[in-house]
Write a protein that binds this DNA or RNA. Structure first.
Lengths: 230, 230
DNA sequence: CGACAATTTGAATCAGATCAAGGCCCGTGG
DNA sequence: CCACGGGCCTTGATCTGATTCAAATTGTCG
């Protein structure tokens, strides 16, 4: 689940297989602001996102929020640990999900195909989180923002006249809590990327990637493709 | 796998079940400095650590190293993504591991018990990595080091005359790359913790936790239990 | 004992956080 | 239709904590 930075390399998403009719699992909708589950709830179900975006968060002891991941269509959310959910999961847009009994994780016999899909999603999630570490540990603010945008572009970007475009469904504060910066720094960095012509941002929400190569290079830590734009 | 900060709450480790005779899997030893696997290798096997310590690392495009986790006895290492290992795994002490065919992940029929164990380990790893995020994202240097020490104490610490003691098997640089700091800052922070009587450190390797509560509070971000010790 | 690697300490620097203010967007109600 | 209000976004100025660069010390192993 989650915005998987490793998944850049592995599109299209293998977890987006048509499981609905195979399992008879119910598909239902979740409104913006509604919670799919909360940290500590007993985890009876897993969910695959069909439409919309979710935000997975955890709280520290002293009230700091960490955004663990964003859940986009195809992602599987709600992997339990010791039978409990270990994060809050809120819809940040009107969404639609498919629910599975968590027991399919243990039980391979009933639905081998489904079991394999869930297992694959779990393993991919581990890999995605390791990618997330790379970002949180040592990268500069530009590198973090560039990595985030680059991953989103690969994940949900749509071609538009030579360029790629996508929507930032989440507020700046969520992005900040995801990549380990403050809202202010995210803003400043976005304007910096705008000023040096790497991206264009319309209406706060819409991102157009003008120079994908530059964005990718910045994500990798290549300095100074952007200098002189403070 | 990995040094699971969440596992603080869940000792003793459920994955440390006796699987050897049940599976007939071969147990073998790995010398210090030897690699169990490398990033990009086809992932044919999983390993459960029996003795010793491993270090899981990944490299960024521009040569920065990130320590993903440390593998202690009981941890399961080598979860694949798309059939490949996604980190390097090096023994940092003489070690002993148990190998399992990776196919046990998919295949529940042959060894349901083993399958469940591996599945549980994978899910626990996801949770552990989420805990790791909390640290890398926003915590101060003291909080990071305190979290690291606290987790190790809970994981491998042994009671010693009112206190808890354990060995830091890894060099400072590894700790730094794990918690997202520099070697120098790790050092400084350790001396800070020493000076204010939270821990004692002998022979560079041996840590004695003198005030576990203070250590835990610092890990949670409680400021100023340590002030005046610069 | 001697050399090399790892650890520790010190001083200077810098990137991002913090604090504060202003601007924009959008819905609500006069 | 326009004025008002509140939330989110953006920008500016300052400050702080971690990094960087450099050097000294300790520990290790042949």
């Amino acid at each position: 689940m989650g915005l998987a930075f490793s998944q850049m390399k592995f599109a299209p998403h293998p977890s987006e297989i048509a499981t609905r009719k195979a399992t008879g699992s119910p598909e239902f909708s979740v409104n913006t602001g509604a919670y799919l589950f909360r940290e500590g709830d007993p985890a009876s179900k897993l969910y695959q996102v069909r439409r919309g975006v979710f935000r997975l968060t955890r709280m520290t002891a002293f009230g700091n929020r960490q955004v663990i991941a964003f859940g986009y269509p195809g992602d599987v959310l709600g992997f339990p640990c010791d039978g409990l959910y270990h994060s809050d999961c809120e819809a940040i847009s009107n969404a639609q999900v498919l629910g599975f009994a968590a027991s399919y994780l243990d039980n391979a016999e009933r639905q081998p195909e489904l079991h394999r899909m869930l297992m694959g999603a779990a393993l991919r999630e581990i890999s995605a989180m390791q990618d997330h570490f790379m970002m949180l540990a040592k990268k500069s603010a530009v590198a973090r923002v560039a990595t985030f945008l680059s991953a989103l572009a690969d994940r949900i970007g749509e071609p538009m006249a030579e360029h790629t475009t996508f929507e930032l469904s989440m507020p700046r504060a969520d992005i900040a809590d995801y990549i380990g910066l403050t809202t202010e720094t995210v803003c400043r960095t976005l304007t910096q990327l705008r000023k040096c012509g790497v991206v264009e941002i319309d209406n706060i929400q819409t991102v157009i990637v003008l120079r994908p190569n530059a964005l990718h290079a910045l994500a990798e830590g290549d300095q100074d493709l952007c200098q002189g734009a403070n």
